[in-house]
């Protein structure tokens, strides 16, 4: 059993690493501080992120920079309709061995990296999408009857464009559910836009410094799971998730947006995601326990892609964010 001093040292170490990561990322990426924090939280929780934003907001740059800061291997896959699963996972190639005999050798695909950027994932066919999603879930790929383990830590950052839907294959709900977070990239503010212009049109600055390696990330990942969670806080998270179901009444007993516009509420994976992310947030904030605020903050990124809304919501322009915001406002912290 670790001593209190060791735990305190561990917490301060995690916090320091995160602060350094934020500082290094800020040298390359303008704005998106919250997004970077969420991506890091997903990484230390062992999850994958679905990034949604219009082109040109720095998604690829951010993911690549993250790989550099964390000293992790990075690969990018541009999803297109003719992309095949073997293009992602890799394939057995017929090669000559040193003795001159013809043998099949497994040629690893781009999925064999710590951080994989699946750009415009919704442009590939479902068959190809499912190949990646299997890798995300199992953290391994099977080619020619042989299983190949992926890197550890392994994280997929998939992007999709919300405005160009023609010729796309929207991700099935079951596959979307496997993403730990769904993060939205906002258009930068006026000040941020000016800074972006300065940063990208001047002489290139030196790249970001490495602050954490794969081993460090795995340690933090373990520490996250040891953060104590009070029963009342856990109960709050459970009630929040339950309140996203149309069959459940919300805190004040009146029928809210969830009852009107949600077809299917969050899955249990949503609750796992909320709690784990809240623990990570508490750790990165230097706290030894999870607070109600941690739960509330992680509600949107964890659940927004897990709510299946009905046609009425689509017609009335009600979004999952709006529903979750109402749920968070109505459910009392302690029952």
């Amino acid at each position: 059993m670790q001593s209190v001093e060791e735990i305190e040292q561990r917490i301060s170490s995690a916090r320091r690493s995160f602060d350094e990561l934020r500082a290094e990322m800020a040298r390359v990426i303008v704005g998106h501080e919250s997004l970077i924090e969420q991506v890091f939280i997903a990484l230390v929780c062992g999850g994958h992120c679905l990034l949604e934003g219009v082109p040109g907001l720095g998604k690829t740059l951010m993911v690549r920079s993250l790989g550099e800061v964390l000293s992790l291997s990075f690969s990018r896959i541009q999803f297109t309709p003719d992309l095949m699963p073997a293009d992602i996972t890799g394939t057995n190639m017929l090669t000559d061995d040193p003795s001159g005999r013809k043998v099949f050798e497994f040629q690893r695909g781009p999925v064999f990296a710590h951080i994989v950027l699946a750009d415009e994932i919704n442009r590939a066919t479902p068959k190809t999408q499912s190949a990646l999603l299997e890798a995300m879930q199992e953290q391994s790929v099977t080619v020619g009857g042989k299983m190949h383990r992926l890197e550890n830590p392994f994280m997929v950052l998939a992007t999709q464009n919300p405005i160009e839907m023609e010729g796309t294959y929207p991700l099935p709900e079951a596959q979307v559910d496997r993403f730990f977070f769904k993060l939205l990239l906002e258009f930068p503010s006026r000040a941020d836009l000016a800074r972006i212009a300065d940063l990208t049109t001047a002489a290139p600055a030196s790249g970001p410094r490495e602050v954490l390696d794969a081993a460090g990330i795995l340690h933090v990942r373990q520490w996250v799971r040891e953060v104590p969670l009070a029963e009342v806080v856990k109960d709050y998270a459970v009630r929040l998730v339950m309140s996203t179901h149309p069959q459940q009444r919300q805190g004040n007993g009146s029928g809210g947006l969830a009852q009107r516009f949600v077809l299917y509420g969050s899955s249990p994976r949503g609750l796992q995601s909320v709690i784990l992310a809240a623990k990570a947030r508490a750790l990165l904030a230097g706290r030894a326990n999870v607070s109600f605020d941690d739960i509330r903050t992680q509600l949107l990124p964890s659940l927004r892609h897990r709510l299946i809304l009905n046609l009425e919501a689509d017609a009335e322009g009600v979004t999952a964010e709006k529903i979750l915001t109402e749920v968070a406002a109505q459910v009392p912290e302690v029952e």
Partner: peptide, 19 residues
């Protein structure tokens, strides 16, 4: 930040880890 309520629950339990 719910430190007291977590401690209150922990104080009623048997297992006491480092965290």
């Amino acid at each position: 930040a719910e430190c007291a309520v977590t401690a209150w629950e922990i104080s009623g339990g048997a297992e006491l880890g480092g965290a």
